[in-house]
Structure formats: structure tokens, C-alpha cells
Simulated assay, not measured.
Amino acid sequence: MNNQAYIYAPRYMEIGGGSVSGTAAICRRLGVTRPLIVTDPFMKTSRLIDRLTVGLDASGIEYSIFSDTVPDPTDTVVARGAKVLIEGNFDCLIAFGGGSPMDTAKAMNILAAAHRLDPGIHIREFKLPLNADATAVPLIAVPTTAGTGSEVTRFTVVTDTVNNEKMLISGLAALPVAAIVDFELTMTVPPRVTADTGLDAFVHALEAFVSRRANAHSDLFARSGLSLIGHHLRRAYAEPGDRLAREAMMLGATHAGIACSIAPVALVHAMARPIGAHFHVSHGMSNAMMLPVVTEYSLPSALDKYAEASRIAGFARSEMDDETASRTLVEMLQRLNRELSVPSPRNYGISPTEWQRLLPLMADQALASSSPYNNPRIPARGDIVALYQASYG
């Protein structure tokens, strides 16, 4: 294992129940006075956002709210948000919500900075393999789901509505300056969202752990994520009010996010993104759809790491040999999908004709993301097509 690593993390992190009340203090430390809050319509109408704004109001911080985000951030929404950021003369962004508001805010920040040099530039100009390192303003991330870990990663995903492609964008510009990780914001998250975001976080931890780019530093955070999520996801799903489970899930998601920011994600994510783009399946659910079949396919190339992951997550017993422990991992991932009511693509309602028609394009888009080359077993195009076929139902 190569133990040389680049470690990316926010400058400030405040973790713990009630920590959202410290947002105004972080604004003062950053020297910003006019933030634009990026959230979604539900957060605004449910008044959960009051947990954030009451502290800003008390501190006399003037803010505005951009709540036009959509579940899978699109280039059109990002362009609209960047225009608001530029024209409003804001000096800070606060992303409040799940992965979509955070990804939207990151992309808005990248695009607003680029517009200073080229007002006509499109966000697709920054998709991998390019790096996006210039920002317009500091970004503070406040997650309200235990899933994406976007509050600590240097990645954002935006859908290109012209090409119907989920674009992975990476760089220092996508890394928040500050993260506020308050598990109390997740206490009212419904079971479906708990399942999908929790499985997304588990995939982050697992893929970082088995990645060809894994090292001792990513493994440290991946092990924590695997353990916390593996032992608490079903509890958080079945008992939404369990504070211990919610806190463990939130911390696990953050640690998994740090892990995959060091050792980037692999084949599961690569294959999940096209499913989300073409069939509008949530990111976490599309990851879960692909997780068992991709894991089984990848076992031979990293049997020891998959076996260790299975033990850490509490799926395999410590005395099991690697072959048995890794097979137990696949079986438990299949069982977890059943228990958390994750549908197959067929049961989700995707027609077999449309699925088959799009398989070649989805395979090409998965390969183009570069994520498959982090996988323990690097697939050929035909392998990806076969895995899509196997996952259908």
C-alpha cells in the first residue's frame, strides 16, 4: 500500500448536537457579513432552516435564501444560482440540506469564479479530468442528512441537461472552508431518505477502503465509517428517534466523506451516476442498486480488504477466513437492500426495453468518469454492461 497521501478537509469543522447554532460565529471568524443560503424548497417550507437562520438573525447577519435546488443538481439551476450569487454581491455561501444543495452551492461557487474571466462559460468545462480550484466566496456546508459527506469532500456532481450526463467535478473549489456537522438536523429525516443516504455513505467508506488509491490515512477514516454505519444504519432506519444511532450515522458519513476525498470512489459510483441521470433514481438508491453485484465482481482482486471490511462493519465474525467473510459481505449487502426496501431497477419501474437500450451509453459514461480505474478489479466495457444486466432484477 502506498502511504503517501494528499489529505483534503475544511479549515473549520464543528461537530455535535446543536452545533448549527455556531454558524454565525464561523461567519465572524471568516470575516463575512452577507451570506447566500443555498437550500431546497422542503427545507424552506418545513422551517428546519430556522435552526440556522435564528442564530444569524440574532447576530445581525444579513442573508438571502436561494431555494431553487432540485434533487439531482442540473447545469441550469447552477447557472441560475451563480447569477444570483454574482448579482447579489454576497461574500459567502452557506449550503444547508442534503447532497443536492451542497453540490449546487459548490458548483455555483466554481461557475461564479469562472464568470469573472468568461461570462459565457458552462459548468461542463470543469468536469473531470480537469481540476476546479478557483472559488468566488468562502463556502460553509451544513448537512441535514447522514449520507453524501459532501461537507468534507472536494467533489460535486452536476447533471448536464443537454447531454443527459452526470458530471463529476473535482478540485479545491469544491471543498468547503467550514463544515458544521449537527446530527440533530437529521432527527426528522424519513426512513426512505435515511436508507438511501446511509447506503450512500456506506459505499463511500467501502470504496475508499478497497480503492487502488487507498492508503493508511484513507483507511483510518474508512474503517470508522464502515463500523459506525454498519452497526447503526438499520437502527436509524427502524427507530428514527434513536439519538445514538443518528449521531453515529452522521459521524460515520462525515468520516466516510473524508476517506473518499483521500481515496476516491470506484466502480459502484461510476455505474450509479448514469442510472440517476437517465432514470432519475436518487444517488444513494442507485448506489445501493449496484453495490452487491459490483462487490461480488470485485472480490477476487481484493479479497483481504473486502473480508476486513465485512468484519469491521459487523457483518462477518472475527474468526471467519477471508473467503467466507467476503462472501458474507455480499450476502449482507443483499440482505441490507431487502431490509431497507431498496428496489431493483426493474422493481423501481424502469422498463426492460429502455434499460437495454441505454446500457451501452451508460457503460461509456461510467468509464468516462475515470472512477472505474480506482476499483480493485478494473472492468472492461463489456464487464460494465454485464453488471448492469445482472443488477436489473
Rank of each mutant, 00 (worst) to 15 (best):
residue 185 L to F: 08
residue 184 E to C: 12
residue 143 P to M: 08
residue 178 A to F: 03
residue 144 T to G: 03
residue 143 P to T: 12
residue 172 L to R: 11
residue 163 N to S: 10
residue 177 V to N: 04
residue 143 P to R: 07
residue 142 V to M: 02
residue 166 K to A: 04
residue 144 T to P: 01
residue 155 F to M: 03
residue 160 D to H: 09
residue 168 L to H: 11
residue 153 T to C: 05
residue 159 T to L: 15
residue 162 V to M: 06
residue 165 E to I: 00
residue 159 T to D: 14
residue 150 S to Q: 13
residue 140 I to Q: 09
residue 146 A to Q: 08
residue 146 A to S: 15
residue 181 V to A: 02
residue 177 V to P: 00
residue 150 S to P: 13
residue 145 T to M: 13
residue 167 M to S: 04
residue 145 T to G: 11
residue 179 A to K: 05
residue 157 V to T: 11
residue 161 T to D: 12
residue 181 V to G: 06
residue 141 A to F: 10
residue 174 A to V: 14
residue 187 M to N: 10
residue 145 T to N: 13
residue 160 D to M: 04
residue 186 T to K: 10
residue 141 A to D: 04
residue 177 V to C: 07
residue 170 S to Q: 13
residue 181 V to L: 11
residue 140 I to T: 08
residue 173 A to H: 11
residue 143 P to I: 04
residue 147 G to Y: 03
residue 165 E to V: 11
residue 182 D to K: 05
residue 150 S to G: 15
residue 144 T to I: 07
residue 186 T to R: 08
residue 159 T to R: 14
residue 142 V to K: 00
residue 135 T to M: 15
residue 167 M to E: 03
residue 174 A to L: 09
residue 163 N to D: 15
residue 188 T to A: 03
residue 156 T to D: 10
residue 184 E to I: 04
residue 147 G to S: 08
residue 179 A to L: 05
residue 183 F to I: 01
residue 139 L to V: 15
residue 176 P to H: 04
residue 157 V to S: 02
residue 179 A to N: 02
residue 175 L to W: 01
residue 184 E to S: 13
residue 163 N to Y: 11
residue 133 D to S: 14
residue 133 D to Q: 09
residue 156 T to S: 15
residue 184 E to G: 10
residue 172 L to F: 15
residue 164 N to P: 00
residue 183 F to E: 08
residue 182 D to P: 03
residue 134 A to F: 06
residue 167 M to Q: 10
residue 150 S to R: 14
residue 141 A to N: 08
residue 160 D to A: 10
residue 181 V to M: 07
residue 175 L to N: 00
residue 182 D to W: 06
residue 183 F to H: 13
residue 164 N to M: 09
residue 152 V to G: 04
residue 153 T to V: 01
residue 144 T to N: 05
residue 178 A to N: 06
residue 165 E to P: 01
residue 184 E to H: 14
residue 178 A to I: 07
residue 136 A to C: 09
residue 172 L to H: 13
residue 152 V to L: 05
residue 167 M to G: 02
residue 169 I to R: 06
residue 176 P to K: 07
residue 181 V to W: 00
residue 155 F to W: 08
residue 134 A to W: 05
residue 186 T to A: 13
residue 183 F to P: 12
residue 151 E to D: 14
residue 176 P to S: 06
residue 162 V to E: 10
residue 142 V to D: 00
residue 163 N to G: 10
residue 171 G to S: 11
residue 185 L to Y: 09
residue 188 T to W: 00
residue 154 R to L: 02
residue 157 V to A: 05
residue 162 V to G: 04
residue 151 E to Y: 09
residue 179 A to D: 02
residue 152 V to R: 09
residue 144 T to V: 15
residue 138 P to K: 08
residue 179 A to C: 05
residue 186 T to C: 14
residue 143 P to A: 06
